[in-house]
């Protein structure tokens, strides 16, 4: 059963920036890139749990603030030589409102 939850407006997130949605105990990092695409992944780097929401965003990826791993925001997978994955969420934007699919 899918469960779309509205979490805010696209302009609440700076372009090439991120905000956090707190879902119970889980922090979800929601990103907006320069093309106004929105992505959501668990706010926990697969390397050592760095908060990805605090990283630098480029294209469809983010660089973790702790040790510079690059994470693909569409899949939550680490890129390049590093390996690991953090969970990602389906996102849709309707009339400027962001919805996340939470299970």
């Amino acid at each position: 059963m899918s469960n779309w939850i509205e979490v805010g407006k696209i302009e609440d997130i700076p372009a090439l920036g991120a905000r956090v949605v707190k879902n119970g105990n889980v922090d979800i990092a929601v990103f907006r890139n320069n093309k106004d695409e929105v992505f959501a992944v668990n706010d926990e780097c697969p390397h050592r749990k760095g908060q990805l929401s605090q990283g630098i965003v480029h294209d469809k990826s983010v660089t973790c603030p702790l040790h510079n791993w690059k994470i693909d925001l569409t899949t939550g997978e680490a890129m390049g030589p590093d390996e690991g994955c953090t969970g990602h969420y389906a996102v849709k934007v309707e009339n400027g409102n962001i919805f996340l699919e939470l299970k």
Binding site: I5, V7, G8, D12, I13, R19, V21, K22, N23, G24
Partner: peptide, 11 residues
């Protein structure tokens, strides 16, 4: 100010 508050708190 957006930097220091969550976008949304669910549950």
């Amino acid at each position: 100010s957006h930097e220091f508050v969550p976008l949304k708190v669910i549950g």
